[in-house]
């Protein structure tokens, strides 16, 4: 009668040992993977034209921001599960994910500020993107403050979970929507996810030659072919500025924008992204420095490798932190049961 039981127990033990070994192997693989991403970031991906080495920061900056959003969603889900099932482990996972998300949010803000210092000349200029991420940081700082302000464990968990659900709802708006609603942001929103102004505007010499792009009025005056280059003569009217004349160009041989003139006193650039001389049409766009960073295939591959690595790192970190929180809870419970710290 004992044989089947011991057989099952041995099998279970062996499966657990195998699982533990696989988990250890995955952690070492993650260590090597991230080291590879760092090497690729500095050595394999090319410099971005106009930004030099500063463009490389996208390999760290965007994945940390992505992990932030993922972490806050995971945290919100565990908070909902806690309210539904009232399991302490769900609350520990919610707190752990929020803490890791908060850490990655700080990293995304810091790497963004470094990029801003190099490219915009200032660490912080209250760009819509900077402002919204600061608000998000404050919302989650308040979550931790709320939890630490309540002594009763059950009350703390319940109120924390409810607050966390509200916080998670604000996250997509603050990270993805609000920065794209702003007409004037220096943040290169078009680097990966298409924003509202990523497609530019198509103007036609014999038709609609005037159009609005954000809060700027663009007028296409002429298209002139100079060898392989097509030079567009464009008047730009921006609120509070005199009419500016720019001559961006397009390289027919490479099929890419050639000269992108900068606006007076600002770093936005005017680019001709597509041209058709037969119909006299040109697609114009206003780009922030860093737009199209992921156009290069080596950069794109390194970027995706970094996204995968950071996601795996998040999973490891939040589970580890949740385990430690459960350990704390276990010690506190022992103390309550036996009346003295063990």
């Amino acid at each position: 009668m004992m044989a089947p039981f011991s057989h099952t127990a041995t099998g279970k033990k062996a499966a657990m040992a195998l699982r533990s070994q696989l988990a250890q192997g995955a952690k070492f693989l993650l260590g090597l993977w991230m080291a590879g991403v760092i090497v690729a970031m500095f050595v394999i991906i090319p410099q971005y034209e106009g930004l030099g080495d500063a463009g490389r920061i996208i390999i760290m900056h965007v994945p940390t921001a992505w992990v932030t959003s993922l972490a806050f969603v995971v945290s919100g889900v565990f908070s909902a599960l806690y309210l539904f099932r009232r399991r302490v482990s769900d609350d520990a996972s919610a707190v752990a994910a929020a803490e890791v998300g908060f850490l990655f949010c700080i990293l995304a803000t810091a790497t963004g500020a470094i990029f801003a210092q190099i490219v915009w000349g200032v660490f912080w200029n209250w760009d819509p993107r900077e402002t919204s991420i600061l608000v998000l940081l404050l919302i989650y700082a308040a979550y931790f403050a709320l939890r630490s302000a309540i002594d009763d464990d059950n009350r703390k968990r319940r109120l924390g979970a409810v607050y966390n659900l509200f916080a998670a709802v604000t996250m997509p708006f603050l990270l993805f929507v609000a920065p794209r609603l702003a007409d004037s942001s220096l943040h290169p929103n078009c680097a990966f996810i298409q924003g509202s102004q990523c497609d530019g505007i198509t103007l036609e010499l014999s038709g609609a030659r005037i159009g609005l792009l954000g809060d700027s009025k663009l007028e296409l005056k002429s298209l002139e072919r100079q060898g392989d280059l097509v030079v567009a003569d464009v008047n730009v009217t921006r609120p509070g500025y005199q009419v500016e004349n720019h001559r961006p160009s397009f390289d027919l041989a490479s099929g890419k924008p050639a000269d992108r003139p900068e606006f007076d006193g600002e770093q936005f650039m005017l680019a001709v992204e597509q041209v058709d001389l037969a119909t006299g049409t040109a697609r114009l766009n206003i780009e922030a420095p860093g737009s199209g960073l992921l156009g290069n295939s080596r950069t794109l591959l390194t970027f995706f490798a970094s996204m995968i690595g950071f996601t795996a790192l998040f999973v490891w970190l939040y589970r580890l932190r949740a385990q430690l929180l459960m350990g704390e809870e276990w010690l506190a419970q022992r103390e309550r049961t036996y009346g003295f710290p063990s």
Partner: peptide, 24 residues
């Protein structure tokens, strides 16, 4: 510098992970 920082963080995490497993 970035590699050294990562190796240090990774080593710390592995140590913490081992301690957490022992606690569990």
């Amino acid at each position: 510098v970035a590699l050294v920082v990562w190796v240090a963080i990774f080593a710390y995490l592995l140590r913490l992970d081992a301690q957490a497993r022992e606690l569990k």
